[in-house]
């Protein structure tokens, strides 16, 4: 499919969502690294500020102010309170907010309590940075977001619409309109779903894509399939493994290669069946989702860090034909 995937890095705003534990942060960080390797400057936004994103570059946690974590890659952690203060400063010219302490606290309170306020502060800050980049006022070209998980992301991306339903007039309503425009523009924005070739992540991906199309006007980019096992064996190999298990053959093999041959054949069978069940889930994904799929191989490594981020970036680069 000549879908939107190859031009993915030409856009301005890339979200990465997916079920918990599939490697969203790694894929988002790798995309930023890849973009920086072709000469772009990137702002990488971590929505759930847990420090996972800078960890992909082996750097300590970042705050609301963006900091360079790698040449060409700036990172920031979302903080809705800071976002609100920035909004008030920029939009309302509220002088020194600290002096009206109770006001600030009350607004924070509304932000935690009133539905959608946290989401709009997150999306609002992200879109604001995108607009700064488009209009040439920022020192980056692309914003990559390590977004909320599948369960939360629709609420997050749909926040401008929700707020518009709640607020009838005033500056906030007007602002939700340009937010929606940025989010809905396929030349600017793409939401990408990260998954693994396992049953539940695939099921959630299919469900999320359907829900996004139904509820939101935000364009979808690609599905990144993480942790795809390498195909170590051909079908003929698999047949050979099974043939080698036949008692008379197994005995002779053991005489020649040592006592552990059963364990080796068990291991081979495990590798084959893992690969095969994953192939079934992939097949299901391909049939149900009409989006470009980008494959990232399973990496047999112990810990995450810059080396792994680079490997994933290389894999994505190859998939995008760079």
């Amino acid at each position: 499919m000549t879908g939107p995937a190859p031009d993915l890095l030409e856009r301005r705003l890339l979200f990465f969502t997916g079920k918990g534990g599939v490697g969203k942060s790694t894929v988002a960080a790798a995309t930023a690294l890849l973009a920086s390797s072709i000469g772009k400057r990137v702002l990488l936004v971590e929505v759930d500020a847990k420090g996972d994103v800078p960890a992909q570059f082996e750097r300590p946690a970042v705050g609301f102010r963006a900091r360079e974590v790698h040449p060409g890659v700036l990172a920031m952690a979302m903080d809705t309170e800071e976002s609100l203060k920035e909004y008030l400063r920029l939009n309302l010219r509220v002088p020194v907010l600290g002096r009206v302490g109770p006001v600030a606290r009350a607004l924070e309170f509304v932000a935690t309590a009133a539905p959608g306020v946290k989401e709009i502060l997150t999306i609002g800050k992200i879109c604001w940075e995108v607009r700064e980049a488009i209009e040439g006022r920022a020192d980056f070209d692309l914003v990559v977001v390590d977004a909320a998980a599948t369960g939360h992301v629709v609420a997050q991306l749909g926040a401008p619409d929700s707020i518009r339903e709640l607020v009838d007039v005033g500056p906030v309503r007007a602002q939700t309109e340009w937010l929606s425009q940025i989010l809905a523009d396929p030349a600017i924005t793409a939401v990408n779903v990260v998954t693994t070739p396992e049953e539940m992540p695939v099921a959630e991906t299919i469900e999320l894509v359907a829900r996004m199309r139904e509820r939101l006007a935000v364009p979808l980019g690609a599905v990144v399939v993480n942790r795809v096992l390498p195909e170590l064996f051909t079908h003929a190999d698999e047949e050979a493994f099974e043939a080698l298990r036949r008692p008379e053959v197994a005995q002779r093999l053991e005489r020649r290669a040592g006592r552990g041959t059963t364990a080796v054949l068990d291991g081979a069978r495990l590798a084959v069946s893992l690969r095969r069940t994953r192939a079934v889930h992939l097949e299901h994904l391909r049939e149900a989702v009409d989006l470009p799929l980008l494959y990232v191989p399973y990496l047999f490594v112990r810990a995450h860090g810059l080396r792994v981020t680079r490997m994933v970036a290389d894999a994505l680069g190859e998939e995008l034909g760079l």
Binding site: P230, L282, Y295, P297, D314
Partner: peptide, 21 residues
């Protein structure tokens, strides 16, 4: 650890198995 650095692309089912990955 073959697919190091992504140079080895994961490949799909071949031959008599379903459509390529």
């Amino acid at each position: 650890a073959q697919p190091r650095g992504g140079r080895e692309r994961p490949r799909g089912p071949r031959g008599d198995r379903p459509a390529p990955l």
